[in-house]
Design a protein around this nucleic acid. Structure first.
Lengths: 207, 207
DNA sequence: ATATTATTTAATAGACTTATTAATTGAATG
DNA sequence: CATTCAATTAATAAGTCTATTAAATAATAT
């Protein structure tokens, strides 16, 4: 049993494609660029994946899957109080975006253009949030009844969490460019937003 | 003195270009499509505007200008209480997005790619928010001192307003597609979000 | 009416793109 | 060693896109 140190060209192409698609989107990435980044001939990209669309869809679906699996993962939540669950969701969502800062843009741009393939994604997404939603909604009802939390739906809360976090990664780079922020300032503000976004949520929950 | 009923082809091209650029972005819009939409030969697009980049930049800068002028317009605010000012800002920002639902996507996509031209936009933006910021910040200080509002900066508040409103227009179409919402459901939810986003803000302001 | 200027079009050069095909190299197997 | 199959490349077809040029048409002025 030995570890395969040889990296297959197929995998290199996948990695190069993922990098470029995330950086520049589908249209601005050519198979020639992917080949160059992977270190092979352009025809090889088509040899392994036939079409650029194919290649993109494979990457997109797997990324999409992994991303939403994490967003709606409920395994770490069970032992926490409701408020702590919300805190955990917001923070881990923020951290996930920090690791995948280009995902929001990719989703915004490619999901809307690829409506043919949306059925596949809908299928993949179908069962994922069920468990989380069931748990959060029942607990939320108790909290509301006990007047510890304002009368809201879990969707309302989730919308605010996601909006605040995603906005930072979609809009902040633009604002930072326009306002000429230094790299140091950017990092500082991103960190501040993590806690401040959470503050917004917690204010919103107060009865 | 007579009104010119004749619409110039130059203007028709501009309008066609604006429509298409907003709908599909810079890359997915060709000068051939613009010409077709305007009802003229493709070469005419280049006759009037020389390059596609030129044409795009003209439209982008004027849209950008008009949009931020409205976002940071302070003329209707003067007579209102601080809280009402915030309410007005959030609501009119929301309405502006409702009239320009594609602006956020255009900004997210094209601002980042056109870093060469960002200087021009920075210049245009420079003086616009000054008046609004000055007014809001002084009033905010009073409110905080009187303990009517939590200790926050105006930027903090504005970030939340913009995030919540913009997110709706950037992400909601995707969610609605994924979850198969009907047109009726969509409109209902958009309206609900307008008031609910405001609720989030007001919760956030409470000391 | 003729000359001049502005609009508009047809044609096309030149640069890229995706995708395919046939030829070449390399490795594994009998 | 010869054969077979997989991996890789070179070449290229077919299409799109931007931008230019020269020709045609319309408008204006002399």
């Amino acid at each position: 049993m030995s570890i395969n140190l040889e990296v297959s060209m197929e995998k290199l192409i996948l990695e190069a494609a993922e990098k470029l698609f995330l950086e520049k989107g589908f249209d601005l990435t050519s198979t020639t660029q992917i080949a160059k980044e992977a270190g092979c001939n352009q025809a090889l990209v088509h040899y392994y994946f036939r079409t650029k669309d194919n290649l993109f869809n494979m990457i997109f679906e797997s990324k999409f899957n992994a991303f939403f699996q994490q967003v709606f993962d409920s395994t770490h939540l069970t032992s926490l109080s409701f408020i702590d669950k919300i805190k955990y969701i917001s923070n881990s969502h923020f951290d996930l975006l920090l690791e995948n800062p280009n995902m929001p843009k990719l989703l915004v741009n490619e999901l809307s253009r690829r409506k043919e393939n949306i059925g596949i994604l809908r299928e993949k997404l179908k069962d994922i949030p069920e468990k989380l939603f069931a748990m959060m909604n029942t607990e939320l009802q108790e909290e509301i009844k006990a007047k510890r939390i304002k009368d809201l739906t879990f969707i309302d809360i989730l919308f605010v969490v996601i909006s605040l976090n995603v906005s930072l990664f979609l809009m902040f780079p633009l604002a930072a460019d326009l306002l000429n922020f230094s790299e140091r300032q950017r990092k500082l503000i991103v960190n501040q937003r993590k806690t401040e976004n959470l503050n917004v949520i917690l204010s919103y929950l107060r009865p």
